[in-house]
Design a protein around this nucleic acid. Sequence first.
DNA 1: CTGAAAGCGCTAACAT
DNA 2: ATGTTAGCGCTTTCAG
Lengths: 335, 335
Amino acid sequence: MVSIDEVARLAGVSTATVSRALSGRARVSDSAKQRVHAAAASLGYVVSASASSLASGRNRNVGLLVPFLERWFFSTVLSGTAAELMRQGYDTTLYSLAEDRDLRRNVFDTLLRRRRVDGVIAVSLELEDDEIEGLLALGIPVIAIGGPNPKLSTLTVDDVGVARLATQHLLALGHRRIAHIGASAEFDLDFHIPTQRRLGFEQALADAGVDVRTTRFEPADFTIEGGFRAAKRLLGGAGARPTAIFAASDEMAIGALLAARELGHRVPDDLSVIGVDGHELSEFFQLTTVDQFPLLQGARAASAMLAVLSGAEPPEPTPLPFELVVRATTARPPE
Amino acid sequence: MVSIDEVARLAGVSTATVSRALSGRARVSDSAKQRVHAAAASLGYVVSASASSLASGRNRNVGLLVPFLERWFFSTVLSGTAAELMRQGYDTTLYSLAEDRDLRRNVFDTLLRRRRVDGVIAVSLELEDDEIEGLLALGIPVIAIGGPNPKLSTLTVDDVGVARLATQHLLALGHRRIAHIGASAEFDLDFHIPTQRRLGFEQALADAGVDVRTTRFEPADFTIEGGFRAAKRLLGGAGARPTAIFAASDEMAIGALLAARELGHRVPDDLSVIGVDGHELSEFFQLTTVDQFPLLQGARAASAMLAVLSGAEPPEPTPLPFELVVRATTARPPE
DNA sequence: CTGAAAGCGCTAACAT
DNA sequence: ATGTTAGCGCTTTCAG
């Protein structure tokens, strides 16, 4: 492997100058800079990450903590983050916490403590107290996306606001019998976000003078299948059918769409459906949704991390954008 | 940060013994080993990755090269790989090549050459020749999953076999007018796999004495929406409608299902549909498919990498398992 | 089995 | 602006 000494020799300067010229962290004369770059290029020299890290304490590497990889939302956020980091020459090291508890502990106790990452971005994770302590004890910046983590610097959409926006859209169309498909209890344990959405839903109803007790709530697991089953219960049961369903995720909303179709209800004539996310499938299904731009969320977190790493203050709890996208699954309720 | 010296002092041994005891790479007396572990635990000591890498040349880190992150198939493979690597105490560093060409080049020219990873796993990537050269020049093991990369040690499903199996299933049910939804030309440039599936399709037909010219082919992009549109063309056009569709991915098959439904064709009574993948949604849609166990593919690649890193020979081009899963979208053709 | 000591390849004072 | 040099925190000979 070609080392910094060979570059120095070829460029006719000291190793220190090579280091400075290549990292740009100190002033170097133009002529020296040019010779160094030429020498490095001709030798195909690339700085050794471990040597550089050991000497400088910097890694150019950010750790990403995610709950699952297979869910569209997470992989999309992840994609946004990794792309932005890469753009700045940073690597992304992945820690998935889907595994069993021992492995999860191991992430905090060992993997993250090897000082391989300059910072940690936690995506939509409800972390336990000692895990948060563990992160903070690393002595490196930690940024969370979503999931109210009061002790962490967090980028988050206003989930209450998201839910209010969705619900208000239905109310404005004239709906009064609105049902909500949200988080099942055990699901909520991990994320909390869902509860916020239910809160926003109920607030909007209350603001509009709709008695919340007349609405129905069905828990589900944020998948298409879960939404499908929840909608079946909502539409198949006795009592007055809702004229609209607000699902806390697009995947559940799509499930509801399919359920309605299967039961012979026309959307949006008989039933309106709205979701949350801006899922890639929402356009295909012509689903009205509140887009929360997950790719952007990931990129934002990466930018914030990069800024902190170059000396900026940790970001204030920043509101992330969201936007109502009206498509073809919502309309006025039937007479 | 607590260093190896403090552990050594507390345990009453030399740093060399601490290193040996903790890494397990040399014989150490039981008593020393115990004292070292106790000392390390009580001090909360974790080996510094960069110091260890610099001294040993080992990183306990594997690079993962993927084309996209947002597609279910890739994130699932990725998940399988990361989980298995983590189980062995390895980190996973992600390099997504979805970005523009400059960033893509940068991955090969710089990021991968910093000697941060002990090996590279390339997932379903059609790499260019100079990129393969670049990987090989790293002097570390490279393992590819899927995508015929003759110069790389590759784990791959027999895509011809997969397609034959799917097609034979339809033939065995009595179908003769079978259409295929496969890769569009530009999509194939990146992956090749699709062509193989088309090949298998045609082979199976020929074996059964069905004139391939009577079948129809529609290109699509492996998404639900693409499959939907391709199926619309297949079912809506003039001429004899096919009685069965073989889609080269489950997502396209699901799109075909939805298209059939929308056009008023009953599945499987009027039309049979079969896909490939074992997508998480295939069960929900009761889709008959050829499962290729993507999670397992990822785990297998990780195991193979780990084996090579601990001195095993690079794996022979290994066939990956696949299996016909018959559900409710295939049946005998209508009279 | 254990310890002493020489690096691993860089960066960051400190000089000049 | 540049060179000299002392580490960064480990691992691995080499001796014993």
